[in-house]
């Protein structure tokens, strides 16, 4: 059977599901960055929190994604809408790489550079803005890149709770025992992951170039 025969039939659905998939990943990544970068910064300021926060994050990562979706289902406001729930679960998964890399990037700033900055009279915010974040940006984007690729993959599971996305094809294909339908979800998802990886890789390289 020709691999992409289904495309002729279901082009519109493919577009819709890809759109949903991108939406799930986009919102989750936005939240993961909006929460994860400040958390990483906080960890670099309060190193005592490090074990707790990274540990909690690690635990989330070890919960199988299907189980996490299931566990969140009974939560009142969340469970009411599948996409809310999916976004929360995806955000939790994406958080660890973002937090960890933000922390690592800041902790990796050359001690003499930080010391010179503090000694010159930069306030903690100025230190963060002028020195630490720019120098950590490459590592932070690398974390976002990893998180995005993971999220694109995990988002296929969201279909199991009815949140849509390319997983719809995968689960339907599994039910129908039809590989071509499975591939109709899996191949575009893989391409999305690849595309996101390339795009963020490009951004990363630009950062390295402008910062030497």
């Amino acid at each position: 059977m020709p691999l992409f025969a289904f495309i002729a039939i279901d082009k519109r659905q493919l577009l819709t599901l890809t759109g949903e998939h991108l939406w799930l990943v986009g919102i989750s990544m936005f939240l993961a960055v909006a929460l994860g970068v400040p958390m990483g910064i906080l960890l670099s300021r309060r190193r005592g929190l490090r074990a707790v926060v990274l540990g909690a994050n690690n635990i989330v990562q070890t919960i199988p994604s299907l189980a996490l979706f299931g566990l969140l289902l009974p939560v009142p406001w969340l469970g009411a809408r599948a996409d809310r729930l999916a976004i929360l679960a995806l955000t939790l998964y994406a958080l660890l790489p973002v937090v960890r890399n933000t922390y690592a990037g800041i902790a990796g700033v050359d001690p003499p550079v930080r010391e010179a900055a503090v000694g010159m009279g930069l306030t903690p915010w100025q230190l963060l803005w002028h020195v630490e974040l720019p120098l950590a940006s490459n590592v932070i984007v690398a974390g976002i890149r990893t998180a995005t690729v993971i999220t694109v993959g995990v988002a296929t599971i969201a279909a199991a709770i009815g949140a849509g996305g390319l997983g719809e094809f995968i689960f339907r294909g599994l039910a129908m025992v039809d590989n071509s339908v499975i591939l109709a979800g899996a191949v575009p998802a893989a391409l999305l992951a690849l595309g996101a990886d390339l795009l963020l890789g490009l951004i990363q390289r630009t950062l390295v170039r402008t910062h030497h």
Binding site: D110, P112, V113, A116, V118, G121, T123, L135, T210
Partner: peptide, 19 residues
């Protein structure tokens, strides 16, 4: 902060901002 800006600080290997 005022104290430190009242005082110039120069260290070995300079500690320049690489970016």
């Amino acid at each position: 902060i005022r104290l430190r800006r009242h005082i110039g600080y120069s260290i070995q290997e300079a500690g320049l901002f690489p970016h």
